[in-house]
Simulated assay, not measured.
Amino acid sequence: MAIQRLHTETRYSEAVIHNGTVYLSGQLADDLSGDVVQQTRDTLAAIDRLLAEAGSDKRQLLSATLYLQDIDRDYAGMNEVWDAWLAPGTAPARTTVQAQLYSPDVRVEITLVAAQL
């Protein structure tokens, strides 16, 4: 089966699709000026768009890794948005870690793996 890549840059593709599985690269908010709640909302909206383009949606999530710049400060706010976004009964396997992200303005980055519809 062929590998399909979406929005490929020099170093990465935003999404890679293979054998009915969608792999998303780390997704960020477009506007990095807000708090973790705003950034998480923006990031999840970007994920919704990218999953749709890849032939999937948030109900098909298999795995998620969430990176927080400051887990003590931002874990509750991120979870508030994440919990409201997830479709009931579709929680993926998930890991949340604190990480030094590429810019001090980035509060949250999310990578996902999902099944295609």
Rank of each mutant, 00 (worst) to 15 (best):
D35S: 07
A93G: 09
D74S: 11
L24C: 06
D74G: 04
R49Q: 11
D30A: 02
T95P: 00
R59Y: 07
A93Q: 11
D48Q: 12
D83Q: 14
W85E: 13
T65E: 12
G20F: 00
D42N: 10
A52S: 13
G77I: 05
D35W: 05
L50R: 04
V22R: 02
L28S: 10
V37N: 12
V16M: 09
W82I: 00
R49M: 04
S56P: 08
Q60W: 02
Y12E: 06
Q39C: 12
A54I: 02
A45T: 05
V36F: 03
S13I: 00
D35P: 08
R11C: 00
A46P: 02
E14M: 10
I47E: 07
Y23S: 06
R41S: 15
Q27A: 05
T96R: 11
S13V: 03
R41K: 11
L32W: 06
V81M: 15
V22L: 01
S13H: 09
A29S: 08
W85H: 14
D74E: 11
T40W: 09
Y23E: 12
R49F: 08
A84R: 14
L32T: 07
D72M: 10
A29T: 01
Y23R: 12
L32S: 05
D48T: 11
V81K: 12
G89M: 01
